[in-house]
């Protein structure tokens, strides 16, 4: 059905405020009264959602969309650390191997968790583009890791308010603090003491926060697959 309120007949257009409110509300959903009846029966699809451009992967809407958004970021991180461990940079220490392997495993756990939880609603596996990363260089690898971890923290912090379900909000909370632990460790590997410096934490002691479009804008340079967030909630 198209976005309109044509289902409201002129006879219904009384000045009663509550009716106007109801009409406005339903119209804002792209639904007239007839549409609401269809909605009530829950047996028909609504085709007025936004369509992803050709070649783009639609993350979806509502909580499913947010979970797919997280799934996409975890895919990116898991792929990155898998490469880091498979082709270790020169001069890597045994302690770094151990903890970077831990991080790889955490990101794999996150990725597989989302994939399993989303089931048939999951977006496909993403194709990554790590051409800009020199996996033999400690500086290149750790700077990329820092960017990914800070991005992950900012993404989960920004996604919290977009989540409807308290259960999913808690799950995001369980993951984001682990990403923050990673971020602090990676930052300290690059420069000890930068775990929460003023590039990550503001004057109120608050961490990074980014909305999905800003996060995806950073992520896209590491992805061949194209993600589309046009159906994600924005508030």
């Amino acid at each position: 059905m198209k976005r309109n309120s044509s289902g409201i007949s002129s006879a219904e257009q009384t000045p009663d405020a509550s009716v106007i409110h109801r009409r406005k509300f339903l119209a804002s959903l792209g639904l007239g009264v007839t549409a609401a009846a269809v909605l009530a029966s829950c047996d028909k699809d609504d085709d007025n959602d936004n369509q992803a451009p050709a070649g783009f992967i639609d993350l979806g809407r509502g909580d499913v969309g947010i979970l797919n958004y997280a799934f996409a970021l975890e895919q990116l991180e898991a792929a990155f650390y898998t490469r880091v461990i498979a082709s270790q940079y020169s001069g890597i220490t045994p302690a770094e191997v151990a903890l970077l392997t831990d991080i790889r495993d955490h990101e794999v756990a996150h990725r597989e968790f989302f994939k399993t939880a989303l089931g048939s609603n999951a977006i496909p596996g993403l194709e990554v583009n790590f051409a800009a990363i020199d996996f033999s260089s400690r500086t290149s690898v750790l700077n990329t890791a820092k960017a990914f971890e800070d991005l992950g923290v900012s993404a989960y912090n920004g996604a919290g308010k977009l989540i409807q379900s308290a259960d999913y909000l808690l799950l995001a909370g369980k993951i984001v603090s682990v990403e923050a632990r990673h971020a602090a460790y990676i930052r300290d590997l690059l420069s000890n003491g930068t775990f929460a410096d003023n590039t990550a934490v503001d004057m109120n002691g608050l961490d990074l926060v980014k909305a999905p479009p800003a996060v995806l804008d950073v992520a896209k340079s590491f992805l061949v697959s194209k993600l589309w967030a046009g159906n994600l909630p924005t508030s």
Partner: peptide
């Protein structure tokens, strides 16, 4: 977090503090 779900601004700020505490814990 769940108790703050109805207030987007407060929830977001609480999440921002939460991850700073995790950075501290890590260090």
């Amino acid at each position: 977090a769940g108790a703050l779900i109805s207030n987007n601004d407060v929830l977001t700020a609480a999440l921002q503090i939460h991850s700073v505490e995790a950075r501290h814990a890590s260090h």
